[in-house]
Simulated assay, not measured.
Amino acid sequence: MKILITGTAGFIGYHLANRLTQRGDQVTGLDIINDYYDPQVKYDRLKSAGINTDTIAYGKPVKSNTHDNYQFIKLDLTDREGLDKLFKAEQFDAVVNLAAQAGVRYSLINPQAYIDSNIIGFTNILECCRHHKVGHLAYASSSSVYGLNEKMPLSTADNVDHPISLYAASKKSNELMAHTYSHLFGLPTTGLRFFTVYGPWGRPDMALFLFTEAMLKGEPIKVFNHGNMVRDFTYVDDIVEGVVRVIDGPPQGNPEWTGANPLPDSSVAPWKVYNIGNNNPVKLLDFIKAIEDKLGITAEKNMMDIQPGDVPATYADVQDLIDNFGYKPETSIREGIDAFVDWYLDYYDVKRGNTSH
């Protein structure tokens, strides 16, 4: 297939582009490469995929020098004309929209970034998919949409109308916007609620990266909610496997759906929402212990109150993923953390001679 993946200088997008390229799809990666976190990590991800970052210029595709079936283009999702030109030229079979302004806490500081990227940018993606007859749009939603929900495990069958951050609200909005396009224009769309993704090439603003960095520097780590957090940490390869299976199985519409009893995660339209999570919640202090064991370092912990916008617990119900695709994420925390730490030590030691950056 010809597939567009937005956000390929990002964490999940980088891994997904590699996977689809390796299986033989024609992949176009897109990213604006903003400075929300260290852009060097983003450029190095692209270099790892064979992109000569010295030749990147806005709006100009760059071919990978290691994969004949991969190209990258620097483009902003808010650039409607640029996106339309790309869609017209490439005629994509499928689109995976992973580009977004990420982060719960940052949405309290810079809400406009979330409107620009996650609302306006996503509208432009929907419009391009509609007008250029894309066969399937899969897009990143988030476990954050569950907001104040407390019934565990968190299920796509439950109402999610109480988000507690603008980031979460923007992701819930994406699901609603996608439904209208599925209903009005017959565009198959699938929303993917990711649960705390971690692994090699991970985001520097996320807990695993921050904890590892601080421990190696001998600095204290910030432990929010006094350690009473529970997260369904999901290894990036498991996320990618789920996304690939979903791409290959666009929704057809649920013939049993009825407006008299409207299920929140499907529709008569070709629209569906899935959780992709490990289905195995882990206490934050156990997560930290696994990092300590791998590094051979005991962390100094600053116990802090829960941050505004954070939820105390996540736990994914993935029964739909099992039923429809025969798939369930299974990488253990120990395996995943070991792989991340090995990558981290290699990346910073080899590239910069030390673990500071």
Rank of each mutant, 00 (worst) to 15 (best):
L86Y: 09
L284Q: 14
M215L: 08
R130Q: 14
K351S: 08
K283E: 12
D342L: 00
A207F: 05
G249A: 15
N110H: 10
Q40C: 06
T6C: 05
T355A: 05
Y14H: 15
Q319P: 00
D265Q: 07
L108F: 13
G202P: 09
Y70L: 15
N279G: 01
Y315G: 02
V282Y: 05
V243Y: 11
T78N: 04
V223R: 02
L345V: 10
P308K: 09
T189K: 04
G10F: 08
F209A: 03
L46A: 05
S143M: 07
L86T: 10
V268R: 09
N69S: 13
Y36P: 01
D248W: 00
F122W: 08
P220G: 03
S170H: 01
Y167M: 04
V243I: 15
Y315I: 00
D79A: 04
M229N: 06
T55E: 14
A339H: 10
F185H: 14
V311A: 03
Y58H: 09
A178P: 15
E175I: 01
E292R: 06
L345T: 10
V236Q: 11
C129K: 11
V236I: 15
L210K: 07
F122M: 04
A214D: 05
T212P: 08
N354Y: 06
R334P: 00
A138Q: 06
L284D: 08
Q22L: 12
P61I: 06
K272C: 03
E256S: 13
L98M: 07
N52D: 15
E256N: 14
I5L: 08
G50E: 06
T53F: 03
R23K: 15
I12R: 08
L20E: 12
N149F: 01
N18W: 10
I120V: 13
T196V: 11
D68A: 14
D25H: 15
G353Q: 07
I276A: 03
R231N: 02
P250G: 09
T21K: 09
G277N: 00
D286R: 08
I51M: 01
F211Y: 07
A214N: 10
N52E: 14
P329Y: 02
G199A: 12
L187K: 05
I288H: 12
K2R: 14
H15A: 13
D232I: 03
T53V: 15
S141K: 09
V240A: 15
M303L: 15
N97E: 05
D44Q: 09
I288S: 06
N280W: 02
I5F: 03
N159V: 07
E330L: 03
L16E: 02
I297N: 01
T298H: 11
L46P: 00
L108T: 09
F194R: 04
W271S: 11
A99D: 03
Q26T: 06
A102H: 04
L321V: 12
T355L: 10
N254A: 08
Y114N: 07
G199N: 11
I109W: 02
P270G: 02
A178L: 12
Y315H: 15
